[in-house]
Design a protein around this nucleic acid. Structure first.
Lengths: 333, 333
DNA sequence: CTGTTAGCGCCTTCAT
DNA sequence: ATGAAGGCGCTAACAG
């Protein structure tokens, strides 16, 4: 496989010119059925596979998109990734996967590398970049879709879950079941979900006539250990807390562990609610009350919006908001 | 961003030739510090980013690798993927992620698309392809590493977990704790882990002087529902079973659900053991006895082996076997 | 140290 | 319906 067979080989072998081969490969109509068959036969026999690189240089299209996310192994994002790869596959695109490991320096670095790869479009999930930095980076891509980050610029698609509504429903549910001191383990403020879930929490309290105390809001890394640490801290500082609304399910799992460690029974002493409804949520003991976010669909929709933009039909559906659904289980009945 | 700035622009702007710019970009030494600075300044000012496509066409290297796996959203593979992307990032490679969704037709299709993309190397995880088909496909890549599939061909790297040893330890542990009718929920026979774990099961039984009955071996899809269905079937057919050795942790979770549904207590009536030690395993109730497989490391090692091959140092470390470690928890004490 | 000449493999445009 | 010429943006040889 050191020296690849090229279009010239196929042309020579089938006694036609390069252009004819090219036409056959690209399914142009103006080729006689006769020569088409002959060329196809040679292509098959030589196991010829056209060079996407050369083609890309000539057409200025690569048939690739970039997918950047904070952590592929986070079950939320791995579902998004599956949606993206599946939708991309349908339209014959390949996907560059980049995991920034929650590091915004690396995130920017990855965006630069994708720029050099001349991807046709970018899907950027839960970007941690500051607005100006993000704006500068996005400007260098022919088209882009942001997942989980609100963005006003035209030409940039946006796919969001309805996090605020979900958070309001969940906190209203906690209040309705008699909880009065509801702590929040808050997520990344730069992400839409982080700020929207906080907002939903605040609004639900306000609507019910309660004040929102800063002391009940604890910043928290969006993973199990983040939830464990934050819950331990918050419960120590505010022992009268009777419910924890957690940024996501992973955090909620950490919160469950913290409660167990502190001897607080769930849900009797402390109710716990998560967000996302990752598969884990239903399997915990007690099973987690949470809000279902259609992660796979987020990935699919983001890809569809992006490919639509790439095909030069921008404008339409520039901001997609997908609904979420409360799921009540044992951790906060 | 419609018309990209090119090397010619940089050359003109800084009053040098194309080659000098090229040299600066590629860090060649034979450029005077003076002109280097001038060129760098222009590159920075114009925010010039070289075209990887053009460069690839000229150098016949793309700086990309392909990663093909059955399912990105499976926690096993998403950890592998994180290892691959991280190791690739270190060496300045980008990763094409392909999820075959457990469909071997699609898997082959994805391999073809990667061929056209002219990737420098391929990492193929748990391929479900038949030997001849796989051999033909691999021949078209400059280098390749298989994860979780044994392969004898030279020039193809291989990274495996020591599944057989792990399975033997686990089954020996079950026997040691007094279990006598041990059912197996078996995984994909085409994968190394599927066959190796079966072999470990058989050998552990044989070593202890027990026969291995086919009736105790139930084929099973490698996901939660697969485990649920298979366990229901097997426990119905063989009610005297007192332990289930499951292909992986997801299957074990399904088995736990089946036991709950059938009113069999775990571990009192039936012990359950999984494999992989995904994060979920420790969080289940009862927590799963399992075998820790270093998934992230598998991805890192596979990438290292691949990049070593790409750099033209083949031969060395063509088959890497990473050790596993038994983790005893409540589901099979 | 710097520039010139040829491609890399394919597609676009214009002829035929 | 088919072919010839030129170029996509960059780098590998050679010159100078």
């Amino acid at each position: 496989m050191s020296i690849r067979t090229t279009m010239a080989d196929v042309a020579r072998e089938s006694g036609v010119s390069l252009m004819t081969v090219s036409r056959v490969i690209n399914g142009k109509v103006d080729v006689s059925e006769d020569t088409r068959q002959r060329v196809l036969e040679v292509i098959d026999r030589l196991d010829y596979r056209p060079s996407g690189i050369a083609r890309s240089l000539a057409t200025r299209r690569t048939g690739t998109i970039g997918l950047v996310m904070p952590d592929v192994s986070n079950p939320f994002f791995s579902d998004v990734a599956r949606g993206v790869t599946t939708a991309a596959y349908r339209e014959d695109y390949n996907v560059f996967l980049c995991s920034s490991e929650e590091d915004s320096h690396r995130e920017l670095d990855l965006l630069h590398s994708l720029e050099e790869k001349r991807i046709d479009g970018l899907i950027l999930c839960s970007s941690r970049l500051a607005d100006e930095v993000l704006a500068a980076a996005l400007a260098n891509f022919p088209s882009a879709v942001l997942v989980n980050r609100r963005w006003r610029e035209t030409g940039v698609g946006t796919v969001l879950a309805d996090d605020e509504t979900g958070a309001r429903m969940l906190v209203a549910h906690l209040l309705h079941s008699g909880r009065r001191r509801i702590g929040l383990l808050a997520g990344p403020p730069m992400s839409h979900s982080g700020s929207a879930r906080l907002r939903g929490y605040q609004r639900a309290l306000a609507t019910a006539g309660f004040s929102c105390e800063d002391a009940l809001v604890q910043p928290c890394a969006p993973v199990v250990n983040g939830g464990l640490d934050a819950a331990l801290t918050l419960l120590a500082a505010q022992p009268q807390i009777d419910a924890l609304f957690c940024y996501n399910d992973l955090v909620a799992v950490g919160a469950l562990q913290a409660c167990a460690r502190l001897g607080r029974r769930v849900p009797d002493d402390v109710a716990v609610a998560g967000f996302d409804d990752i598969p884990l949520a239903a399997l915990m003991t007690p099973a987690l009350t949470t809000c279902r976010v259609p992660r796979y669909e987020l990935g699919v929709r983001a890809t569809e919006v992006l490919l639509t933009q790439i095909d030069g039909r921008p404008g339409e559906c520039c901001e997609v908001v997908v609904p979420v659904e409360m799921v009540v289980r044992a951790s906060a009945p």
